[in-house]
Design a protein around this nucleic acid. Structure first.
Length: 230
DNA sequence: AACCAGGACGTGA
DNA sequence: TCACGTCATGGT
């Protein structure tokens, strides 16, 4: 068994199933993740259950750029109140009202524009699953957001790499400081079975682990996984 | 009171 | 290609 699989097993044993992506309108959802916001559904991979939930995940992926989830949740609740979370409703709402609603998530000028443009793109899809390159062509969607949308909204096994992921792998000595986004993505995808459930859990587990051991400098000095590699 | 959060884009070299 | 500045609110 390769090292990345061992790390996955160890993280899973330590933290359990994470149940990403959290949903605000959690109908049919079982928010059992203790000590966290509602909307998680550990062990249930039948999400999103409808197009509404699918679009909400996309919106959340954009709103969470460089921002903590609790703030995104406030923005989503506001959005749901002032117009609703659907492509048409986001296109119809006046931009200033949109900015006001998503303000808690920060970068409201940019993110309001991003949401408008994504809503348009989403309608053009007409129910089809987008290609990664198509997502990257939308203004405001970079590699991490594209992969998050593919993995959590469309259940496509595209591994998500974020700042935490890089810190953990760097701390374990598995990559160099010069490793880029695609290098790290390819590393996971070449060593882990292309199963969207495993990719969803693995990314969420890395975030959970990083929040505990890699949130303040010096990063990773107390990482209990560090003994895995040398 | 800095520092950071589940980044992405625009610019100049 | 790449390093760097910008965007913005709210936690710790």
């Amino acid at each position: 068994m390769n090292e990345l699989k061992q790390i996955y097993n160890k993280l899973l044993k330590a933290y359990g199933l994470q149940g990403w992506w959290p949903l605000v309108g959690h109908d049919g959802c079982n928010p059992t993740k203790t000590g966290s916001v509602n909307g998680y559904h550990p062990g249930d991979y039948s999400f999103p259950k409808d197009v509404g939930q699918r679009f909400e995940i996309c919106v959340g992926a954009i709103l969470t750029q460089n921002t903590g989830w609790p703030q995104v949740e406030k923005a989503l609740v506001n959005l749901d109140k002032v117009c609703g979370i659907s492509p048409n409703e986001l296109l119809d709402i006046e931009e200033d009202k949109l900015k006001q609603a998503i303000k808690p998530a920060g970068y409201f000028n940019q993110k309001a524009r991003k949401l408008k443009q994504f809503a348009e793109f989403y309608l053009e899809l007409d129910g089809r699953i987008p290609l990664r390159d198509e997502l990257l062509g939308v203004w405001g969607i970079g590699p991490e957001t594209a992969d998050s949308i593919l993995l959590y909204a469309f259940s496509v096994p595209s591994f998500v790499v974020d700042a935490y992921t890089k810190r953990v792998l760097l701390g374990l000595g598995l990559i160099g400081d010069d490793a880029g986004y695609d290098d790290i993505k390819d590393l996971f995808e070449s060593h882990i079975d292309k199963d969207f459930k495993i990719y969803q859990e693995y990314h969420a587990l890395l975030v959970e682990h990083a929040k505990r051991f890699y949130s303040k400098k010096p990063y990773g000095v107390t990482d209990f996984l560090a003994g895995l590699s040398k």
